[in-house]
Design a binder for these strands. Sequence first.
DNA 1: CCAGTACCGTACCGTACGGTACGCGGCTTC
DNA 2: GAAGCCGCGTACCGTACGGTACGGTACTGG
Lengths: 214, 214
Amino acid sequence: MTATATREETGHEAPSARQQAVLDAVLALLVEEGDQLTMDAVARRASCSKETLYKWFGDRDGLLTATVRWQASRVHAGRDAGGPLDAETLRERLLDFAVSWLDVIAGRTSVVLNRIAIAHAGSRKGNLGAIVLANGRLAIGARVKPVLEAGRAAGLLAFDDGETAFRTFFGLVGRDIQIRLLLGDALELDAAEIRRDAARAVDQFLALYGRARP
Amino acid sequence: MTATATREETGHEAPSARQQAVLDAVLALLVEEGDQLTMDAVARRASCSKETLYKWFGDRDGLLTATVRWQASRVHAGRDAGGPLDAETLRERLLDFAVSWLDVIAGRTSVVLNRIAIAHAGSRKGNLGAIVLANGRLAIGARVKPVLEAGRAAGLLAFDDGETAFRTFFGLVGRDIQIRLLLGDALELDAAEIRRDAARAVDQFLALYGRARP
DNA sequence: CCAGTACCGTACCGTACGGTACGCGGCTTC
DNA sequence: GAAGCCGCGTACCGTACGGTACGGTACTGG
């Protein structure tokens, strides 16, 4: 009930250490080689047999799905510290989100995984697309919206619909960055530039939705 | 020098009527069948032989490239009417851009083509990605920026860098729409909603960059 | 009326890759 | 230390699909 339990019915359980190593190999391969990822290459890179791959992950799609989930599981480093909200902490929290979001989407791994998921969404079985969406856009939304609501409750922000406000924030932060990276634009973003972009986005968002202390 | 001239050295010339029909078949197939587009299917759909396909377009990538270019060539319906700029016409021009941009990216064809290009960008030969980028994000930028500059010249807008201002505009208009559609989110946008979204984006942009009449 | 050309339809080839089968070494368990 | 698994390595199979070859038909130019 130890090892075999990981490959249960739904295939949703946390992967074993060895399986994680395999998934990391997939990620590495994806990042290095682009998307023409073959099962052979994975087996070779991870020093395991294709048979094991199929036993653990079912088929190629299963392996991809597990990889996306695995990567998603390590991104969820969010600080959702609660507490009283003044203008300064609100700005800080938003800046935090903006920076970490830009960090994610500018990363090679994210780009490659999004490419895979998008290609996948184009041909039946929307699973991958849905998973990436749930762990990307939707997850960040779910974490930012409460902050916005808190900001409104504290009289620091003014908006009717939290979803709309968040989508504006999303647009101000991401702008054309993700689509350009997905389409292969070079567009190097270093930490400093990310910080500057994030700060600008937060300023603009507060200019649009902020309320002068009443 | 008539028919053969279309298949010249670079392969850049406008396609003949028959070739256009083939490219339309590719688009239709792409939209209907997702991305597992085979040369056989194209030949069958367009009632032409595979040999002709290869003769005209070189290989599969050539066909895809020609298709992307063909689609791009029909999107360039931009109104670049010059003339004096007052606040109202500025807002109108921006609204125009926003609406037509949303129309494009929300269309099935654009989604499918972007998917293809993104997948392509993931595996060598960034051509397709570069082409889509050039005809999408870059083209709209090239058309909007002069309007922004004109707005600044007329004292209606205030910004240091036109590129940055445009990217903000881009983000306010597109928000999360494109990535969601690419990843397979349903997200139906009718004309009314597009108009509303575009108007909100323009209002927000003017709130950020507009200058009260001096 | 006879080339020559363009192009359709179909049959064909080669290969890459997803998926399966099998033999063998190294564990755990009794 | 024998029995039984797990999982590695490798060889193998089937097929889908990119690309080519070839025969047949229509149109054009001389």
